[in-house]
Design a binder for these strands. Structure first.
Lengths: 327, 327
DNA sequence: CTGAAAGCGCTTACAG
DNA sequence: CTGAAAGCGCTTACAG
């Protein structure tokens, strides 16, 4: 059977209070009894029960992480960095893949509340928010506007959209297509689209945006891309709102015998390590994924500590172009 | 303040016992009081505290997942499936990225024990095992031999190695190089290497295996690949033990103006959805990632339920070749 | 059908 | 320097 504090106390011949004190280094304990207790703990292979501790302290050091899916390079790396940085601070991560399904997200939110997490990092849309609010829980959003009060951390999507579009224009593209996720998700990623359309307008160029639907699987991507290419045979540039889409565009270009970057220039978005290993040739906009993770955690910790003053509603981190050979 | 069961009881004018009973649908409760209690729960926006419940029930429905890193397509997708399948069964996942660091893994194991997880799924090596054993916890390993008693789930690595090698030989390769991870990790992935070497020997062909070291970053991969190519200018085939390495091989081939598949044939390993989206041209061995996840969870649940009888020490799932154009 | 009591494994005032 | 008692928020025998 698992040893508990009482067992340690009995073996060491002291009270539970004393065991607790030596374990937590709180209050006075004589060196002699400290040794006795420590020996007893080792002998019984004792590990304190964090459930009991948390029940009393009302702190679980648990963080909920809600994302669409880790099976996507951007979120996979974001998850990695969040978990890593959390672990370094003694925080534990409960992972939730909502697949952008509203009902799942609400279930996850409730589950996290029941588990008394100290805070939640959300990278999905906003419907389940009612659950968060009612529990007046610490929440931080990554790249999503959940409400007027929940802090948002993102990279500079408008600037990223501008950089990508400018790059294509500078390289001589006249007929540029843009592929983006569903507008209904209300992500700041829509700013990439806005930047694209604004800049094209500024240059007096026609702009064409294609919206993808959920789920964002490859077959769906390809079907939209094919339609777009059919509708715009003059296309000479593509700005894809993520690297997976860019890869599909490049694939379809191959099928159509378009040479890249001569006939068609392609620029992606995200710039994960995974993609830069698999497709080092892809020109793309790099998001500072680790910084996003770090900032989100900082904001969340401040909320947890109750420092609501110093928290910016919005934190926007810089992006940069990765120079590949596709644009 | 967060409402607790006692608040609900007070508002409904019943005892805590009755609230608990209606909440859990256990024992008799009259329809009238059931309604009163439910109304009170809604009014107070009550969510039960799972910490308290678990403290009593000794079941947390928490599963620990220890992996090298989710920032890698294979583990990213494995993590996705594991979390997804767990959620469908009411299990919650505590994520741990050990980065193959022994000390981290031990810390995670201890953390999971303190948090009273019902079980652990491990995809890393074996040193921290002492911690698992002592807590006599339910544990299942994915693709790692942790001890003679912990069940292992993996795909058929030997068969995968054979399929890959055979493919290259069938395509006429005479001088094949193999790249694999560090032997010290003692993974069944070493069976891929063994299969390669066995088969090459059977065909009377020379075999050359290069071992990569940790951390498996792209620069290190490329440096080993360059050395290998320098040492074997006659190379006409490469079997890489994962798709990331295969991608780097293809990259280096491009630098050396080797045409694929004419001058050099390359086959990878893992066959994730991510890689098949980004590099659909890559010929590779597909692991049944979702099946691995499902099987690991099944085994773990059986251990948790205490059915030690029906559990196979080893479950080996089939792999298959994905037909790309690189080999 | 309902409630008072004890207990899950800890911690912290409060006494001494 | 040390311990007895009460309590964290639940649940389940046990009575009635």
């Amino acid at each position: 059977m698992k040893a508990k504090l009482e067992d340690v106390a009995r073996l060491a011949g002291v009270s539970p209070t004393t065991v607790s004190r030596t374990m937590n280094n709180r209050g006075y304990v004589s060196e002699a009894t400290r040794m006795k207790v420590q020996n007893a703990m080792e002998e019984l292979n004792y590990f304190p029960n964090d459930l009991a501790r948390s029940l009393f302290s009302k702190r679980t050091h648990l963080i909920g992480l809600i994302l669409p899916t880790t099976a996507n390079p951007f979120f996979a790396e974001l998850t990695f960095h969040i978990e890593n940085l959390c672990a370094a601070q003694g925080l534990k991560v409960l992972l939730c893949n909502s697949l952008n399904q509203i009902d799942k997200e609400e279930q996850y939110a409730e589950m996290l509340i029941r588990n008394q997490v100290d805070g939640i990092i959300v990278g999905t849309h906003n419907r389940g928010i009612s659950n968060y609010k009612r529990a007046n829980l610490a929440v931080v959003a990554i790249d999503r506007y959940l409400s007027g009060t929940i802090p948002v951390v993102s990279s500079d999507n408008y600037e990223g959209g501008k950089l990508a579009t400018q790059r294509l224009i500078d390289r001589g593209c006249q007929h540029i297509l843009h592929f983006n996720g569903p507008a209904e998700l209300e992500t700041p990623a829509q700013l990439r689209r806005k930047a694209f359309e604004d800049l094209m307008q500024t240059y007096g160029l026609p702009h064409h945006t294609y919206e993808l639907e959920l789920p964002l699987d490859r077959d769906h991507q390809l079907s939209v891309i094919r339609r777009a290419f059919d509708e715009h045979p003059q296309v000479d540039g593509v700005f894809a709102s993520n690297d997976m889409i860019a890869a599909s565009v490049i694939y379809e270009a191959g099928v159509r015998h378009l040479s890249i970057p001569d006939d068609l220039k392609v620029i992606g978005y995200d710039g994960t390590t995974i993609v830069s290993s698999l497709m080092p040739q892809l020109t793309t906009i790099c998001q500072p994924i680790e910084d996003i993770a770090r900032t989100a955690i900082d904001v969340l910790l401040r909320e947890i500590e109750g420092e609501f003053d110093g928290i910016a509603y919005q934190t926007i981190l810089p992006v940069k172009v990765y120079d590949g050979s596709t644009a």
